[in-house]
């Protein structure tokens, strides 16, 4: 715990015009990025967009497993569809987060707009991109929390403490990936936990288990023999919005520049 003396010291530093977080942050920054878990676990996710068929069974499983109200329009994970035409136009949708899968070629253009149908011969590429919390190495959502209600565990998973969350919504705005939302029942910030309860029971996350096509996988980056670690190290993978410096730990195979 921060001692009272340190508390005063840092408060004074703050008053002197120094940013409090910066002062303390500089100290923790010395650590090497992947040495999060001294116990030897750093969970990372691997998504293969070639394999994803957009069935949405991962979204269904996630909502059931994590008690996210099924009929509310919020979800911890979702699947986006991207259709790129030969003219270079990009059309994307994710109706209900793809909870019921993609069951029509009609692309949802949002409320009050006609759905679009793009003829097969006009499509240059089209694919599905599953999204979930990136469990960033440098999570901006955690930095902005004013009350210590969100934090990163030693395995690198960012969690929310529902008893401390005051519902200010800073974290929801700070996340560059839009993965956080308010839980309709608890009115606190809500996010993907990589199904930490399943991981601790030796099981895979519900979405990974539910995916029939192996498009979603999880592994331990601190275990050099883990197949996911080897793919992340040896093959061509990318992450979302690398330029933000958040160091996402959800790696993608087959990401395209159209994906936002």
């Amino acid at each position: 715990m921060l001692s009272r003396r340190n508390f005063l010291k840092y408060s004074l530093a703050g008053a002197a015009g120094l940013s409090l977080t910066k002062a303390v942050g500089a100290k923790t920054e010395e650590k090497k990025p992947v040495e999060v878990g001294k116990g030897g676990v750093r969970w990372a996710f691997l998504v293969d967009t070639y394999k994803c068929v957009g069935c949405g069974l991962c979204v269904k499983a996630c909502k059931n497993e994590n008690e996210v109200p099924y009929d509310e329009n919020v979800t911890r994970t979702w699947v986006e569809r991207y259709v790129v035409t030969k003219d270079g136009e990009v059309v994307a949708d994710s109706p209900k987060g793809a909870r019921d899968g993609f069951t029509t070629p009609k692309i949802d253009m949002g409320h009050g707009h006609e759905p679009r149908i793009i003829k097969p011969e006009e499509i240059s590429k089209a694919f599905f991109v599953p999204k979930l919390c990136n469990q960033c190495e440098n999570p901006p959502c955690v930095q902005v929390c004013p009350v210590g209600a969100t934090y990163q565990t030693k395995e690198g998973i960012v969690l929310v403490d529902r008893t401390w969350c005051i519902g200010c919504g800073y974290c929801i705005m700070a996340c560059p990936y839009g993965v956080r939302f308010f839980h309709p029942k608890y009115h606190t910030a809500e996010k993907c936990t990589f199904c930490i309860h399943r991981l601790h029971a030796g099981l895979k996350p519900a979405c990974v288990e539910a995916c029939p096509f192996g498009a979603r996988r999880i592994g331990n980056l601190l275990d050099p023999s883990d197949p996911i670690t080897r793919i992340v190290q040896d093959e061509r993978v990318s992450v979302l919005k690398e330029e933000y410096g958040t160091k996402p730990q959800v790696y993608y195979i087959g990401l395209s520049k159209e994906v936002k």
Binding site: V36, Q143, Y151, Q152, D161, W164
Partner: peptide, 15 residues
Amino acid sequence: SYERGYMYSWHEKNN
């Protein structure tokens, strides 16, 4: 503050 320091793991452990 735990494993990830004040910036990233300032929280109540039993959560």
